[in-house]
Design a protein around this nucleic acid. Sequence first.
DNA 1: ATACAGGTCTTAA
DNA 2: TTAAGACCTGTA
Length: 271
Amino acid sequence: MIKVNDCNFSIEQICESGQCFRLKKIEENKYSMIALGRYLELEQDQNEITFHCTPEEYVQVWEHYFDLNTDYKRFIESVTEEDEYLYRAVQFGKGIRILEQDVWEIIISFIISQQNNIKRIRKCIELLCEKYGEKKFINKTEIYYDFPTIQALAGATEEELRDCNLGYRSRYILNTAKSILNKEVDINALKKMDYKDAKVELIKLSGVGEKVADCICLFSLHHLDAFPIDTHIKKVLNQYYPKGFPFETFLGYTGIIQQYIFYFDLKNGNV
DNA sequence: ATACAGGTCTTAA
DNA sequence: TTAAGACCTGTA
């Protein structure tokens, strides 16, 4: 176990920000995460976060995964009070970090996310993991399921996938798994491409359009210029930026700005 | 009951 | 190139 002090990020906000669906609150200030074939428990007490893993695992895996080496102050401070709405959004979600998640898992997760709500997305993914993922032990009694492999989903049928409440997305997932398995789209090559090229490749996948491709670029390939436009962002852009959003002000990290807006609207949209 | 949730695909003008 | 309509399912 390792303690990180003076961290200015929030597990709560990362959990609620809708970019990762297998990070969940177990009890007050306590969270569990299943990712990269591993199980991790985290606790947050103010500015101190406890990672329940070895210091080696923290350095080799989680520090990078949670983007903890990046100082977000520079992004936050670039938003001035002049832009009242954006300033409020950034202050509200300043504990958010953009994770660097597994590409395959994020492709499937965000195909599931279309025309769906976060609660149901989590449920679909949980069912998918229980049905197709490898079963692993946390200790003698507690278990968890890895995210399914490419082979596992490519070998399923559309009807079986529908049992995970995936609805019409079942066909997309099956087709996508097959075309990744037979290398029509090489997801390992994606990691070496720039944002533009990666997006073009991703859109070749069934069920992946502009928006989902941007989510994959942002949340797994760490292309911070990817700016997914969904219903929330569309609403905000129309309402607060009718003359256009100042993308050029935030070049190189517009995706992070997008995430502050998304989180702010998600949590305060009906206020 | 009807509309909507982190959209995409197909078809047709 | 743009636009309408279909598409699963749980929740409010």
